[in-house]
Amino acid sequence: MKLPNGYRVAFAAAAMMLTAGTAAQAAENFTLYCSPQIEWCQLVIAEFQKATGIKVAMTRKSSGETFAQINAERKNPKGDVWWGGTGDPHLQAAEEGLTAEYKSPMLDKLHPWAQKQAKQSGYKTVGIYMGALGFGYNTELLAKKGLPEPKCWKDLIKPAYKGEVQIANPNSSGTAYTTLATIVQLFGEDGGFDYMKQLHKNINQYTKSGSAPIKAAARGETTIGIVFLHDAVTQRVNGFPIIPVAPCEGTGYEIGSMSIIKGARNLENAKKWYDWALGPDAQKLMPKAKAYQVPSNAGVAPPPEAPKVEQIKLIDYDFEKYGSSAERKRLLAKWDKDVKPLPR
């Protein structure tokens, strides 16, 4: 008897499947998980390769997705460095022991806020840029509705703005959690939650993603979006009628961070990247990549489009306390219980 055809088919299928097999992984010198926008990733990598000759294999994912991936890969890490993305998941990764300690010789060239955050994380993460929290409004809609310009956090809870404000759900978005923590630090815990309850009445939708409110504002789907200021600047630069506002009471901020993944296979190259990324050559690329945050290297001037640091009243944000998972869980549970179920 002859070989059943079914097996030949199965065999051919298996062989075909493997043609998509792995290729040329040895040629690379290290693997970067990149969380900011892709143009920025590509630009920085190109410059790094020019400067050092080290080849970089890059995968771009948002910071939440990268955290989930590094966590899932913890038994056999595939990445070396995680560059960019908001600081919260970086701090969480540090807390859970997913990232490695490294004291870069570049540390003392950084702004005090970056040095402080690095110290608080046990040198497992470091700031590469800073972005202040605030909100943006759509000038056309505001004029059409005849509403006053909001300037402060307290303005947003005025009844005139009912159904006109959007913010993300702090359970899903780091941006909204930073807002919650900022409000609590500004007005105290009781005052802060009172504020959130009043704000709740004006919210038309809690979005899932942190930057969605300003995108909705840009397209006229909502009047005001509470976001990081640089996201509002991006919409403005893209030609939408958005005015970014740094609230008058003062505001919190995020530190876009970088960490070396624990168990990195190419540690030497990872460290080279780490030091280089904190230096002026890397950080002065930000405006070219349409990144409007403040660089962490004290010697690099912020992009001209970025909100002026002098005009923003920054609070002394306690990353150690509000970045810890215990405090986060407590605040989120309280928000879920006291704010979310209220009628609007």
Binding site: P89, S172, L332
Partner: peptide
Amino acid sequence: PMVLGGDYDVLSIEIFFAIVGAQHDQ
């Protein structure tokens, strides 16, 4: 649902944000 969901939460989105959201609750 991600783009158009508004406040109408559905399972698939909740699952996504339970994993990649601020809570990381697998």
